[in-house]
């Protein structure tokens, strides 16, 4: 039954113009970044020589060492330490921080389009329930043998699937466009600093991880939008609140982290799972497991409230 309900939701989603507009805007974004990258791309002859970039990195390390001495903020401390280590590693192993534009740098730069996807799936998550109430179709949806839980679940799952679809579209098309326009020249490794050591990773694995970890934030924000719109039946409020959270949430949490360790329990201190593979967490002592547990608690809370309200309420429109 649930599968058929998801099929239904998918059919409805892709019968609406808005969905195609979203896909179109995403494609437009891709074309824009491709054009921009194409005209500003770095060629072999633009790259600084080994002496030049070594000099730069040494200078940067000096600055970072000063930061490391002066700060007592964990995040800045970690940032300073890990970047020094990576810089030193580059000098020792002759891996330039500069490289010619290639498919990987292009995909990495498209990372910012994930924000756009975030806005889109927030819109879908906020409207997928509210829309049925606006049009009155919720009545015919509920007077069938599917339970209310199943119906709400199908809508949530559809929203998440739509987000994954957009991410896959972005990643896939970035790869195709990037490989055609920019080719595969350049280093295929990514450096990160974990537990006091610099680690070389395959580029494609790193990009996949970073796309996935960006989607964690999207799932959380979408669940939030979904909850608000189910409770208040108002997509405008849900979209506004969620998009606002998306853009200021991380910064607000960063500021909060300057004052108190309690910040580690806030949602946005934990949405960026990247940090465990790169610079280390915002507040000292946080671990990947801790973040995952906090995220699951938030997710459960959002969904629990959404289901509770959806199930209890009399439908009187």
């Amino acid at each position: 039954m649930l599968l058929k309900l998801i099929q239904n939701e998918w059919m409805k989603l892709f019968s609406r113009i808005g969905t195609y507009v979203m896909c179109g805007i995403l494609l437009l974004g891709l074309v824009t970044t491709a054009a921009f990258t194409f005209y500003t791309k770095t060629q072999e002859e633009d790259l600084p020589s080994k002496e030049q970039w070594e000099q730069e990195l040494l200078q940067e390390n000096e600055n970072l060492a000063v930061d490391e001495q002066e700060t007592n903020n964990n995040y800045i401390l970690n940032y300073a330490r890990s970047n020094q280590a990576i810089n030193t590693y580059r000098i020792e192993n002759d891996i330039s921080p500069y490289e010619v534009t290639n498919v990987w740098t292009y995909i990495e730069s498209n990372n910012m389009l994930i924000q756009l996807i975030g806005v889109f799936i927030i819109i879908v998550g906020a409207s997928i329930v509210a829309h049925e109430f606006n049009k009155g179709t919720i009545k015919l949806l509920l007077v069938r043998s599917a339970s209310r839980n199943q119906i709400l679940a199908s809508k949530f799952i559809t929203t998440i699937l739509f987000g994954l679809f957009l991410l896959a579209l972005l990643f896939g098309l970035s790869f195709v466009v990037g490989s055609i326009l920019f080719g595969f020249d350049g280093t295929a490794v990514h450096l990160s600093y974990i537990d006091g050591e610099v680690v070389e990773r395959s580029r494609i694995l790193f990009l996949g991880l970073s796309y996935l970890s960006s989607s964690v934030k999207l799932v959380m924000l979408t669940s939030f939008a979904f909850m608000i719109s189910t409770i208040f039946r108002n997509e405008t409020i849900a979209i506004a609140l969620s998009v606002m959270l998306m853009f200021v949430g991380s910064q607000a949490t960063n500021i909060l982290a300057l004052f108190t360790d309690w910040a580690k329990y806030s949602l946005f201190a934990n949405t960026n799972l990247d940090v465990y593979f790169t610079n280390g967490p915002m507040v000292e002592g946080m671990t990947l497991l801790f973040s995952v547990v906090v995220l699951i608690i938030y997710l459960s809370l959002f969904l629990f409230l959404a289901f509770l309200f959806f199930k209890k309420r009399d439908v009187s429109i």
Binding site: M1, K4, L5, Q7, N8, M11, K12, S15, R16, I17, K135, G136, T137, I138, K139, L140, L141, R144, S145, A146
Partner: peptide, 21 residues
């Protein structure tokens, strides 16, 4: 009122409810 999905065709509206039964 008959609450149907305006953006779906007649057949798809029925298909939608058919899948639920």
């Amino acid at each position: 009122n008959p609450e149907l999905y305006p953006y779906l065709t007649a057949e798809k509206n029925l298909l939608h409810y058919a899948r639920m039964s």
